[in-house]
Design a protein around this nucleic acid. Structure first.
Length: 761
DNA sequence: TGACTGTCTGAATAA
DNA sequence: CAGACAGTCA
């Protein structure tokens, strides 16, 4: 027996690790050694003589898969256990059983922008106005339907509004077009795999018996299709082990169903449940903050994280005058800590709710000469030049890929414009040809000029030539393509041409590496891998750089020092989450995930003002900050770059000055505002666990008539507009009106007795 | 007819 | 601050 496998495990961990047959649910709080349990369990299974090909480990990200593989390698060198994401697994399955799934094995994977192109095309074709129905909304609805395993037929059947009916039509046509082009979007990978397993009973049972031990990580973030796939493979051999934490479910917007983990015990009545609540990652202060926050969620299983670690440094909540100060202060602080020799750059991470916010931080870090790596923002494979080159490659692998055709033919410009392409597409459609085939026969295409005709033919000929060379190494093929198409030359003269060229070089290198590292050396596999590779997968913890990422990307990672910025209403929680309790709670879990990434130090911050669309807006500190019960440290003006700020909250003054001449009672307001410490339990936020907390003084609508609370400057919350400040009160009695300035919705006026305003103090 | 430029609008999270 | 679109020039 390999001692390392069971050494240094807690009794609970050991219980999970040594569980062999039958279903197992591991409820693992953050930092409780979940990855350790999974890898050690696999090692234990191998140790017990289970063949490695009978084990399948499914993770949420490639990075998690790689980390597990590394750890497992150390325990059991030379193992052949397949570890990867759901999407990767499905690609493999679909390539292998393409025929049974009813698709061509050379399918290409469309990303969101490709998918959007198809949706637009379909909408135009169906004559649906794109300004009244945003393609993006259509995309979301279709994606959601797929994740819920609702196919076009059922979708149409269920449609109960004009919107849904329109989307149903688009969805249906979209699917047809995708199959015609031999393209699959991300969701299709899951849907087709699930369909294949559901329909092909023989294949299902073969695979079920072959893949006896399935492990699924982050089970709280699985959606309906993923759930089906897992279930279909765990019937005859239900040795299914899932791990997860309902409090870390942050992909509800993507169709993840938190109920999957909550109903596991019902799905597998004889399952063993192991809870890991002991946290080995964070200091007591950090855990305390996490506990305080998450207990405000109503829909959860009660759970308290424990640690034996000391309190450590207190968690800090800081307030800056504006987003520039926030970024600069953080950059300066990080630099200082490294200069002092207390930390290395790799110890730090900065999280934000939205990717767009990283820009600012980036600039500040660069200005200070602090090395950093970004793990969101424009992903490598989504860069224009990369997508362009990939379009060529995809078209080569799959000549039916019209989206790629239309992309490739425009870059570099070949004198073929929209009019010609429209004619070509229609003609191709009528003849049942792909665009590329049609281009090859451009001689017969009526109604176009010789110049365009020749350009089309020349383009098609390029591909005929490249198709002869598919046995050459990938990197060579790619070089030939970027060279002979004239793309590389062209891109060099574009804005930021050098950087783009460098990126293309990187792509060539990636192809060469791919060929070396994997046993599959086809272009199709390389493309699939590229499509499923994210920024996060390029993250290098050893790089000695500050990591910048979104809260979503932070899941599963840990850092000694964590900064979470822009903890403001409308950002965290995000404005779009305002309309439902579920979404609000998901936002809270998102912050919870962020907080629990920190090992030793945690800093949350917000800025009083933040530029948005070129305009400066006043912000409102996040309600979550109040729930933490941590005093705010005012750091505004510390850097002296923005003059003297009113100590008590310059933002209220701004409201008054910019929206109304009335400037009475600022004194009272300022005091009430300067400390965010007071618990401001929202009607929506905290009726649950945290309700008994001291200081909760929430007044409900209706008390407004009483009017003493209505002093100018009172902080109120409106169901629809969020949090704002009273800037004016006029009239008496029944006609008394109150004007409120909301940070994102401007000034609104309400009848005092009717307004659904909740007073926050 | 294609390519380029200026203006406008509208902005989350990700495999 | 970027992507979409309309308008203009060649």
């Amino acid at each position: 027996m390999n001692r390392a496998i069971l050494d240094a495990l807690t009794p609970e961990q050991k219980e999970a690790v040594t569980h062999i047959e039958g279903p197992l649910l591991v409820l693992a709080g953050p930092g409780s050694g979940k990855t350790r349990v999974i890898t050690h369990r696999i090692a234990y299974l191998l140790e017990q003589g289970i063949p490695d090909h009978q084990i399948l480990g499914i993770t949420f990200t490639n990075k998690a898969a790689r980390e597990m593989a590394d750890r497992l390698d150390r325990l059991v060198p030379g193992h052949q256990v397949w570890l990867g994401t759901f999407h990767k697994f499905c690609v493999r399955l679909l390539r292998r059983y393409a025929e049974r799934a009813g698709i061509d094995e050379n399918f290409v994977i469309y990303d969101t922008s490709d998918r959007q192109a198809v949706i637009k095309q379909v909408m135009d074709e169906l004559g649906i106005d794109r300004t009244s129905l945003a393609p993006k909304l259509v995309e979301t609805m279709i994606s959601r339907a797929k994740n819920d395993f609702i196919l076009p037929k059922q979708f149409a059947h269920r449609a109960s509004s004009p919107l849904e009916e329109a989307v149903a039509k688009i969805y249906n046509r979209y699917e047809t077009l995708m199959r015609e082009q031999n393209a699959l979007d991300f969701d299709d990978l899951l849907v087709l795999a699930a369909t294949l397993l559901a329909d092909d009973q023989q294949l299902r049972s073969t695979l079920d018996q072959h893949l006896r031990f399935i492990l699924v990580d982050e089970y709280q973030d699985t959606n309906e299709v993923q759930y089906r796939i897992v279930r279909l493979l765990s019937q005859d051999e239900p040795h299914l082990c899932v791990t997860g934490d309902p409090d870390q479910s942050i992909y509800g917007w993507r169709g993840a169903n938190i109920k999957n983990i909550l109903r596991f015990e019902r799905d597998y009545p004889n399952c063993r449940v192991v809870r890991l609540e002991q946290n080995f990652r964070s200091t007591a202060s950090i855990l305390e903050a996490a506990n305080q926050l998450i207990r405000h969620n109503r829909m959860r299983k009660r759970k308290v994280l424990r640690t034996t670690k000391p309190k450590g440094q207190p968690v800090a909540v800081r307030c800056y005058a504006n987003e520039h100060e926030e970024a600069e202060a953080i950059a300066a602080e990080i630099k200082q800590a490294v200069t002092d020799g207390r930390r290395t750059y790799g110890d730090f991470a900065i999280f934000c709710r939205i990717g767009a916010l990283t820009r600012l931080l980036e600039r500040a870090l660069r200005a200070q000469g602090v090395p950093y790596q970004i793990l969101s923002g424009v992903a490598f494979f989504e860069r224009m030049e990369i997508k362009d080159v990939l379009a060529y490659l995809r078209l080569l692998v799959n000549p039916r890929d019209n989206v790629s055709f239309l992309r490739a033919i425009k870059s570099p410009p070949r004198g073929v414009g929209d009019t010609t392409l429209k004619r070509l597409t229609e003609w191709a459609d009528a003849l049942g040809l792909s665009c590329l085939e049609a281009a090859a026969r451009a001689d017969q295409l009526p109604g176009i000029r010789p110049a365009q005709r020749n350009a089309l033919r020349a383009f098609a000929e390029l591909f005929q030539r490249w198709r002869q060379q598919t046995d050459r190494p990938l990197a060579e093929q790619i070089r030939a393509i970027i060279d002979e198409s004239g793309y590389l030359q062209w891109v060099a003269h574009q804005p930021e041409g050098e950087e783009r060229q460098a990126n293309i070089e990187e792509l060539v290198t990636a192809a060469a590496e791919f060929e070396e590292e994997t046993d599959s050396r086809t272009l199709a596999d390389f493309l699939a891998t590229s499509a499923l590779t994210t920024d996060l997968d390029r993250w290098d913890p050893e790089q000695g750089a500050v990591s910048l990422m979104t809260l979503h990307a932070a899941k599963g990672l840990e850092f000694p020092v964590v900064y979470i910025v822009a903890v403001e209403e409308d950002i965290l929680p995000h404005a779009r989450s305002a309309d439902s309790q579920e979404q609000l709670e998901e936002e809270r879990r998102l912050l919870f995930v962020g907080i629990t990434r920190a090992q030793e130090e945690l800093y949350l911050s917000y800025a009083r003002e933040r530029s948005f669309r070129g305009m400066v807006s006043v912000t409102v500190p996040s309600q979550f900050l109040n729930e933490l019960g941590i005093p705010v440290v005012d750091c505004s003006g510390r850097l002296g770059t923005h003059g003297d700020w009113d100590q008590f909250g310059a933002n209220e003054l701004h409201w008054l000055h910019s929206s109304r001449p009335n400037r009475q009672t600022t004194g009272r307001r300022s005091r009430s505002r300067s400390s965010t410490r007071r618990t401001m339990t929202g009607g929506t936020g905290a009726t649950g666990a945290g309700h008994e907390r001291a200081g909760s003084q929430t007044a409900r609508a209706g008390t407004l008539g009483g009017n003493e609370e209505l002093a100018i400057g009172t902080r109120v919350r409106h169901d629809r507009y969020g949090i704002g400040y009273v800037i004016c009160v006029e009239g008496q009695g029944q006609t008394r009106r109150v004007r409120v300035a909301f940070s994102r919705h401007g000034v609104r006026s309400f009848l005092a007795t009717k307004a659904k305003l909740e007073i926050l103090r």
